[in-house]
Design a protein around this nucleic acid. Sequence first.
DNA 1: CCTACCGATCGGTAGG
DNA 2: CCTACCGATCGGTAGG
Lengths: 207, 207
Amino acid sequence: MGGRRSDADARDSRAAILRRATDVASAEGLEGLTIGRLASDVGMSKAGVLGHFGTKERLQLEALDYAAEVFVERVWRPAEHAQPGLGRLLAICEAWADYVQNPSFSGGCFIAAASFEYDSRDGNVHDALRTVVRRWRRKLVREIETAVEAGELPSESDPDQIAFTLESLAAGTSPARYLQEDKDVAARCLRAMRLAIGVPAAVAERP
Amino acid sequence: MGGRRSDADARDSRAAILRRATDVASAEGLEGLTIGRLASDVGMSKAGVLGHFGTKERLQLEALDYAAEVFVERVWRPAEHAQPGLGRLLAICEAWADYVQNPSFSGGCFIAAASFEYDSRDGNVHDALRTVVRRWRRKLVREIETAVEAGELPSESDPDQIAFTLESLAAGTSPARYLQEDKDVAARCLRAMRLAIGVPAAVAERP
DNA sequence: CCTACCGATCGGTAGG
DNA sequence: CCTACCGATCGGTAGG
């Protein structure tokens, strides 16, 4: 044991650290991450862990990037090939509601948790988070606008308002999973999302 | 300086510690609270601060109690004297949306932040939080039921679904204040709440 | 990638 | 309510 291993091994252990860091942070918070705990989790020394990232902040930023990739994979990817407009928007909502109930990290949606943790701090993590959240917001607004332009949603629809509501619903649903007795938050969340979008009855009623 | 002061003085400094603790925790998290920082903020020694509460956990629990009282004061109290049913429900939503935009603590709504922080931990703080959140949920559901029974809302309304949606909206709106550019989250939140309730047009359009 | 270490700070206690 | 202290742990560095 000890000493530098091959580049491939180094990449593997780096990835393992990052996965573990993201999972821990989803439950305990990005600020609650500690190098020492992470080191013992992955069976390395503190210096070994820190060597991959330099500082705790860089580790936090990389964990955020990783979580953002997972979010895109879980929420955007399944909807990507649906028809642009209302069809894709509803596919996004379905995947999103499913993600909220069945998240990829043990503490729930990392992005939502980090948003709460850093909304009133400043610094590089706050800024990076803001960028991630805004990018997603723009994607949502554009999809809603497409649906309105295609006549799939009423022309009086307010895309910014709808995007705001969808985001609030997805974020706000998270703590209900564990803190409440709610059995099927995905169904509840999706129902609320459809109402907010103003889905025409014919579409809302389909299986 | 030094030595035990009068009971009244002791109560005052206890209250000052609690106010400060709640404010700090709203921004940095209940877990991020430290006795040392709190002590220097209020101009006391660590032992002096801890003497009032015994342990950090008791301090956290008391901060939660205090924040819950403030929440009731800001969100329930202004609506208390409105007519039971839809009138009171809408008054609650107005006060709630206002509270989200203009919270009593510098980090935003303490309850929402703590819900995220503790949803996937366990322990006494988690349990206490769960109690607070459930009590509020029941109050909401009852108010919605009253409105339905009075014929102010459609008889097909689902009180649990509506209460769930209102809570998710209020909680999820919090991070939008700082993390997004959103100017008037109170108005957006309130609009989303009214839509979720299914407020009859005549009521929704009033000033 | 390790051992060995740094100063700072953590929650909490003893004793007054 | 203070000073003085406890062992543990923090993020990070030196040196190999």
